[in-house]
Nucleic acid binder design. Sequence first.
RNA 1: CGGGGCGUAGCGCAGCCCGGUUAGCGCACCUGCCUUGGGAGCAGGGGGUCGGUGGUUCAAAUCCACUCGCCCCGACCA
Length: 554
Amino acid sequence: MFYSKIFIPTLREVGQEAEAISHRLLLKGGFIRQLASGLYIYLPLGWRVMQRIIKILREEMDAIGAQEITCPVLHPAELWEATGRWYEIKDEMFRLKDRGGRNMCLGMTHEEVMAWLASKEIRSYRELPQIWYQIQTKLRDEARPKAGIMRTREFIMKDSYSFDMDEEGLNHSYEIHRKAYHRIFERCGLKFYEVESDPGMMGGGQSHEFMAPSTAGEDEIVICDRCGYAANMEVADSIPHETIKEESNLEEVHTPDKRTVEEVSRFLGVPREGFIKTLAIMASEGLVIALLRGDQQLHEKKLQKIIGPFRQALKEEIIERLGTEPGFIGPHGHGLRIIADPVLQKGSYISGANKKDYHIRGLKAGVHFKPEWYSIHIAKEGEGCPKCNSPLRIEKAIEIGNIFKLGTKYSIPLKAFYLDSSGQQRPIIMGSYGIGPARIMAAAVEQANDADGIIWPKSIAPFDIEILPLSPGNVVMETAKKIYNSLIERGFDVLLDDRDERPGVKFKDADLIGIPYQIIIGERGLKEGYIELKERRTKAITKLSPDSVHRYGF
RNA sequence: CGGGGCGUAGCGCAGCCCGGUUAGCGCACCUGCCUUGGGAGCAGGGGGUCGGUGGUUCAAAUCCACUCGCCCCGACCA
């Protein structure tokens, strides 16, 4: 491809509104343009990158026997009503009516449609298993589109769905997807982790996410470098640091006007780890007490999984039930349901005395109060791995893929049944697996760039090699074209910068758009019989004779 | 949906507080000359209903109200 024939509108500067590095560089390099909030146009260079990612996705999906199909983006509401998601999902779903007044929606994912298809077509166990996938547009009316192409309202997704007879079959489908995903992200040149995750509204059982570490990421992941434990912060557990065990008898202490753990800790000269943080929670079942160690933070999602939706109890509700105001409440002496973090199983602690201006020391779990034990704290950097107790690390990351074991959540309501070998009707066991190629693109840029621009992994770069003839002179351009042809013959995607621009412009643009290799041809070098090969990543320059370039191992 | 910020030429910005010539700068663009190893130089030129609507005023880019759009933080994120 000649530079003059491909539209690459690079920018000198990008506005304040773009903050994420990938967003800035993709705009600056002429890969993307924004149409409206969360809506992006992929320009020739950006679309080339997407195509190369998609090609890898196809190859690896095909390799595990997945079959590509394509479904409509426009869905009849009935399917979503059948699974209940029509009602569960709120503003994120684009809804509309057709001319006949029928409710429709734009597909944000395709479990319903795929399960519907299976329900129509799969009759017998002989037709199972199946894996169907598509690479197709999804629409979600995101509350807040973010960071360029990282979170958009319309995006392409590779989504696949597995259909099996039983759990064992599902486990196999899940496993081959898991492995395929590893190959895909490796081939795309990304640093990534596979982490345990929260299935969320997808429902079903086990799920994992694939996370590309990046400070621009929206998620936090908890990682153990020793045993490989890795989990999304939403589900991560940790073993908090052991603390000094204060052994003392139950005794009330006067703590006038000292309410928060912080205040009482300072007042008594006891570190926060010596306290029980007593939280009064109003759940649908009524007042519930949640207990954390004084230095811990409540993980609301974890608690919600145990007691359902809740809010902080109001001051009046606390006074009415416990007879004292927030700041002096404790875990003992009332019959309320108590959820406690397991770190409190050992030791004795200080907490509120359920009496204004008093705290109480010497509280022991099992002795003075009897809680249900659930991990409800937020994991912190440096705390112990739940599996091997070595220090955990926390990193920000971009979610680039996820895999879910769905079970029968969609197959039963949509009546996707099959007959087993004994003639009995059974629900098909499903899994669903997604990858966002635009996220891969953004993550690749986030993970590899420098002050001059993008450094594409070879596998997904818009071109393999860029040739920079530095002057319009005949010899230079002829040499460039000769090399261009020989590289094309070898099967490379080559970009030849044939523009009538000064060398500086060509250098700047080449570094910005980040093609892995640059072949620089100048009169100066040519006179001495060499051209230069520059590796974009290292900026290392190798001098080669013009005749030997095509033999180089790119 | 809560909080904050921004909207002025194709792009990036200043001007706005404190109303008052013809609304300015850089880049890009057009013409000519010159130049060709890191976004050249000189000369000339074109391009704006200052997001929109309404109001205050002799006078509004500037003050007020409403509204639309975009960005950031949070909530949310199947």
